[in-house]
Each structure stands twice: as C-alpha cells, then as structure tokens.
Design a protein around this nucleic acid. Structure first.
Lengths: 220, 220
DNA sequence: TGCACTCGGTGCACCGTTGCACTCGGTGCA
DNA sequence: TGCACCGAGTGCAACGGTGCACCGAGTGCA
C-alpha cells in the first residue's frame, strides 16, 4: 500500500478507537465514583469492550489511569510547544533563563483549572485518598516532566541538561503545591473566581522562582 | 457456556449487528439510488464494514438484496402467524377454506403499503427496471411463499398440501397484480388515500378468490 | 477488435477482539 | 485461623473482521 495514503486502515482505526474509549471510560468512572470505586468489569462495560480487550491495550489498570492523567495534563506540554516552536531560529545560544521564561509563559497561558478540578474530584472522592492512585499520578507527572525536558533540550541544545531537569522538576512539584493552596481556597471549583485564585498563586510561584532564594538584594 | 444465559455473547452480537447493518445499508442505497446504482464498495462504506466482510456475511449481492426484500415482506408471514397461533386447539380438522380465511384476515390486517411503496421506489427508479433485481424479488417471494405454506401445514396438518401450495402461490402472484393496479392508481404513494385504494383492490382480489371462477350461481 | 478498466467475487494470511479457565493476592467471616 | 469469595491479571484458542492480490466477466473506446 502506498504510504502516501494518509488515513489509517480500518484495523488501526478500530484499535485506536477502542483504546480511546477505554481511557475515556476510565476518566468518566473516576469522576463519577470519586476515585477507584469501579472494577475492570465496570470499565470494560462502559467502554463497550471485553475485559480481555482492556488488557490487550493496557498492561494494567494503573496504565489505563496513567493514560487518563496524561490526557488531562497534556495541555501544558502542548502549550509549551506552541510557545516555543521548533523552527524558530537563533535561540540555541540562550540560557536557562530564556527556557524559564518560555515555560512561565506556557504556564500562564494554559488554563489548568479544569484539569486540576477534575483531578481533585477524581482523587479525593467521598472515600479516603488512594496512595496507589496518587502513585499513578506521580508517575504521570514524572513521565510528563521527562517529555517536557526533552522538548526543551530539543529547542535549547546548548543549555545544561541538569539546569533543564532541575527547572522542570521544580515547576512540576511547585504546581502540586500551588494546587494544594488553590484547593484549600476554592474547594477545587471550576469557575472564574477559582481561576483568579489559581493565576495569583501561579504568579507568586513564578516570581519566587525567578527571583531565586538568595537574600533579597534590596532596591538599587 | 450454560445455554440458560439468554443474551448472546459479544462476538455473536457483533456479527449480528454487522449483518443487520449491511442489510439496512442495502435497503437505504436501493431507495436513494432508485435501484442497483451503487457498488459493493458503496454498500460496505455505508454499513461501516470492509468489502470482505460483506462477503463473509452474504454469498453475493443478490443474497444481500434477498435479505432486504425478505425484511420488507416479513410483515405478512408474521401477521398470519399472529392470526393463527400454533397452540389454538381443535383446528386441525378444518378445510382449506379455513386456511383461506386466516390468510385473508392476515392480508387485510397487514399494512403492506409501506413495503409496496418502498419496493416500487427501489425497483423502479429513474433508470430502467433491472430484470436481475426482479429475479431476486421473485426468489424472495417464492421463499416467503414456501415458509408461509410451511406455517399453514403446521397449523392445518390434515389439509391437502397441494391445496395449500396452490393457495399460497395464487395469493402471492395475486398480490403482485394488485400491486400493479395500485401503482397505476396511486404512483406508489405511502399515504392514507393510497391505503384506501390498496384495501379496495385487496378486497376485490379476495372476493374473487373466495367466489371462485365458476359461473355465477346468481341470487338465491 | 483488442486493450484497459471496472466491479463482483474469492482465497489466504493477518489483526484485534473475545471467551474462558486459570492463578494469585486481598478480604471478610465463622 | 482457615476457607470462600472477589477481582486484577494472564495464557490460549477461536471468532469475526480486514487487507490485499487475484480472477473473470462485462464494458467502452481508440
């Protein structure tokens, strides 16, 4: 088959559709049950596939959940990639401060409140938080961080990889802290008032990172 | 698997759904194109299956069309079976006149106008009639007639099978003649006026059959 | 009149799903 | 404390669908 034909064949389309349906079903069930209060049987029925098919697509339930969270968190990476397109010339010589500015711009530009709200509802339902589920989320954040760092190194090849890794790690875990404060202030609402709080916290976080933790050099 | 489980499994459900989708797609394309103005490729695309799958379910296009027509004509057999349920006692000794009355009742009770209208539009589109397609319809009528006769013999085992076969054959071909006259009078419309014409023609047809073709015995 | 094309139909290998029996870990209860 | 049950996860075979190359009949055109 000539590879110039851009559309996948029916087999590939079916496979992809089933994979998406499983992830979407898991996302729905997480939200509806407030966490891991469903079985693989429930998930399969909701996705309209067999139990075996779930395991054909994913090695385990934690892989399904990882895909769910990955979808949810995908907006930040996409926004960063939009902020710093690959084909922009003359940026290879810039320092980590430039990388920081691009990431900061992406963080400001991305509306993370829906994702945060969803994750909060899914992870903190009427039952106690599941450490296992938190572990899945952490893994996704780490994986996402790795991809984000890779995207940065691709765009800024002369910046010290350690600086990039430190930056990404700091930002991701910083966002988790921002989330906790945001949650306490807004009860994870997904509305305009909640967005104002989120933006304020993000600004304080980014300002602190920019300024660093050394002694304040004072007005000059 | 215990056969007490009444619902089919997912495989069987998928298979049946694809078979139904193919038949439904063929019915739609016959109507939309006014006959055989589509390809197997069109049919497969409309049914959302592959070309090969069509031939997995049906030996040929004529078999698909036979299924379409069979669905369309199925109402009469179902109505007859409702008119003359199997478990009704004491009817085995009746004659062919009783069988005729049951069939006549079914013919009166079944609204055949939608089916007739559909078949007319499908078989007589903007192009010339297809003798091949007419042949498929005839085959379906014959098959349907065989099943109708079998249902009658099951209910009236003491009636001469020849009498039953003659009756069924006469009624089916009579309905075709009724259709032609109805078509000329109504242009195959599917509306109340068209139903009135159909019923009138059916009554004349049934009266003639009941009275027979001997000399009129006159008023007595 | 020969050739190229279309389309119905076919054989075969492969893919993805499914059914089902099974294992193992966790849990609850008598 | 042992047993029964539940549910995640697994291996394997079968099923249904799919891709693709092919054949043959029919058709249109140079």
């Amino acid at each position: 088959m000539p590879s110039s034909h851009p559309t996948t064949d029916r087999r590939a389309a079916l496979k992809e559709r089933h994979r998406r349906d499983i992830v979407a079903a898991a996302a729905a069930l997480l939200e509806e049950t407030g966490g891991l209060n469903f079985t693989i049987e429930d998930l399969a029925a909701r996705a309209d596939v067999s139990r075996r098919t779930v395991f054909n697509h994913f090695a385990s339930l934690s892989d399904v959940l990882a895909a769910v969270f990955d979808d949810v968190m995908g907006g930040l990476l996409a926004c960063y990639q939009a902020q710093a397109p690959l084909d922009a010339g003359g940026r290879a010589w810039a320092g980590v401060d430039a990388v920081f500015d691009e990431l900061a711009a992406a963080l400001r530009a991305t509306d993370l409140v829906p994702s945060m709200s969803y994750l909060t509802r899914s992870l903190i339902g009427e039952k106690e938080r599941s450490p296992w589920l938190d572990g899945v989320l952490l893994r996704v954040l780490e994986d996402g961080g790795l991809r984000l760092a890779a995207a940065m190194r691709e765009r800024r090849p002369r910046v010290d990889p350690l600086e990039i890794d430190l930056l990404v790690n700091t930002v991701i875990h910083g966002v988790l802290v921002v989330h906790r404060h945001w949650y306490e202030a807004t009860d994870a609402a997904d509305d305009d008032a909640s967005r104002v709080v989120w933006s304020g916290l993000v600004e304080r976080f980014l300002s602190r990172l920019r300024a660093g933790y050394g002694p304040d050099p004072g007005p000059s």
